[in-house]
C-alpha cells in the first residue's frame, strides 16, 4: 500500500482524489490547502486527514508520495521540500516555469533517490494512445506531419486568476499546448527548431498560439492552442497524424459518446465522452506511478522528459516574442 498526501485542492486535486479512490494500492491519507472548505470537501472523498500547513502534513512519517496540484509557480518549492523529506513526488504539469527550476527538481530527486514524475496525462488519453498504437503497428507508415489543437475560452475560473498571469502560468504555450509538445516529443521525435506565433496579450482576455515544430527526424508538426474562444465554449482537442502510408484523424467533438441538449432559459448543447473505468486517463497515470513506487521500478514519465517538453514550450515563447525561429540547444540537466 502506498500512502499519498495531496497538496492543492482545486480542480486537479479533486480529479486526483477521485482517482485514488479507484486505485487499490493507493491510500490518500492527507490533503492540504490554504482553503479549509476546499480541503475538507476533498478529504471527504477518501476520509483523508485535512492539513492547512504543508509542513505539518509532511511530518506524517507514513506518507510515501506527495502529489502536487498547486499552481505552476509554486511547483519547485513544494517538490524540493517533499524530496528533502524523502517523499516520492507526482507533480502536475508543467514541471516549472524555467529550465533552471525544472533541472533543479530533476537533479534533486536523483540526489535524494526519490521517484519523480510529471502529469503529462495526454499520453494516457485513450484516443491518443490508440493513435500511438496504430502508428506503432505500422498502419500509416512513418509519421511525417502532425497537427494538434487544444482550444478553449480564457481561463477566468482559476484561483486568484493565476492562469491569466503569465508570470505564474506561462500562458497557453507553457500551460496548455505543452501537453501536445510532450506527446509529439515522446512519440514522434525530438524537436530541432520551433517557430511560434501568439497574441501575447495583444487582445484583452484572449490568447491564441500556433507553433510549427521541425523534428530532428525531418517530420513537421503544427501545434495550436487557444484561450481565445468565447466564454462557455466547449473544450476541444484534435489531432491528425499523416504518415507515408496513411493518416489518422481525431476530433474530440466528433467522437464523443453523448451530445446533451437542454433548455433552462438558454439552449445549451454539451458533449460528454465518458471512458471505460480501466481507461480513465488520470487514474491510469496515477496508478502507474503508484505501481512504480510500490515495485521500485522506473517511472513512465521521467522528470527529464518533462524538462524536454518545457524546453520546447520555452523556445516557442521565445520565438513568438522575437519573431524568429529558435533552434533547440542540446538540453542538459
Amino acid at each position: 500500500m502506498v500512502n499519498v498526501a495531496l497538496i492543492g485542492c482545486g480542480t486537479m486535486g479533486r480529479t486526483h482524489a477521485n482517482s485514488y479512490k479507484n486505485i487499490n494500492n493507493a491510500n490518500l491519507i492527507g490533503v492540504c490547502d490554504i482553503n479549509m472548505e476546499k480541503a475538507q470537501s476533498i478529504a471527504k472523498i477518501s476520509g483523508s486527514h485535512v492539513y492547512l500547513k504543508f509542513e505539518e502534513m509532511l511530518e506524517n512519517e507514513n506518507i510515501d508520495v506527495v502529489d502536487i496540484c498547486i499552481p505552476t509557480y509554486m511547483h519547485k518549492e513544494y517538490a524540493l521540500t517533499s524530496m528533502e523529506a524523502r517523499k516520492h513526488v507526482f507533480c502536475e504539469k508543467p514541471i516549472a516555469l524555467t529550465l533552471k527550476d525544472a533541472n533543479e527538481m530533476v537533479r534533486f530527486s536523483e540526489k535524494m533517490s526519490v521517484k519523480f514524475t510529471v502529469g503529462h496525462v495526454v499520453r494516457y488519453f485513450p484516443a491518443y494512445k490508440r493513435a500511438v498504437d496504430a502508428v506503432g503497428q505500422g498502419e500509416i507508415g512513418i509519421p511525417k506531419l502532425i497537427r494538434t489543437t487544444r482550444n478553449q475560452g480564457f481561463p477566468k475560473w482559476s484561483w486568484e486568476g493565476w492562469y491569466m498571469d503569465y508570470e505564474k502560468s506561462g500562458g497557453p504555450i507553457l500551460d496548455l499546448i505543452i501537453h501536445d509538445f510532450d506527446w509529439i516529443n515522446y512519440y514522434f521525435g525530438d524537436v530541432e527548431r520551433v517557430y511560434a506565433q501568439s497574441l501575447n496579450g495583444k487582445a484583452k482576455e484572449q490568447d491564441h498560439c500556433v507553433a510549427t515544430l521541425r523534428l530532428k527526424n525531418g517530420a513537421i508538426a503544427h501545434v495550436e492552442g487557444s484561450w481565445a474562444y468565447p466564454e462557455g465554449s466547449v473544450f476541444r482537442t484534435t489531432f491528425e497524424v499523416v504518415g507515408t502510408n496513411g493518416q489518422i484523424e481525431f476530433d474530440s467533438l466528433k467522437s464523443c459518446g453523448i451530445e446533451k441538449q437542454i433548455n433552462n432559459g438558454h439552449h445549451i448543447t454539451s458533449y460528454l465522452s465518458p471512458t471505460a473505468h480501466s481507461m480513465e486517463p488520470y487514474q491510469a497515470e496515477l496508478r502507474e506511478f503508484i505501481n512504480c513506487v510500490e515495485a521500485d521500478t522506473k517511472v513512465s514519465v521521467s522528470g527529464s522528459e518533462a524538462v524536454k517538453a518545457l524546453q520546447v514550450a520555452l523556445a516557442a515563447i521565445e520565438s513568438s516574442l522575437t519573431g524568429r525561429p529558435v533552434t533547440l540547444k542540446n538540453y542538459i540537466h
Binding site: K144, L145, Y195, T212, R214, G218, A219, I220, H222, V242, G243, T244
Partner: peptide
C-alpha cells in the same frame, strides 16, 4: 517549414 516527406516524389509535399 516544408519538404518532400510523404510521397517520395522528389518535390515538396508537406508544408506549414
Amino acid at each position: 517549414e516544408c519538404g518532400n516527406l510523404i510521397h517520395n516524389k522528389n518535390i515538396d509535399d508537406c508544408g506549414i
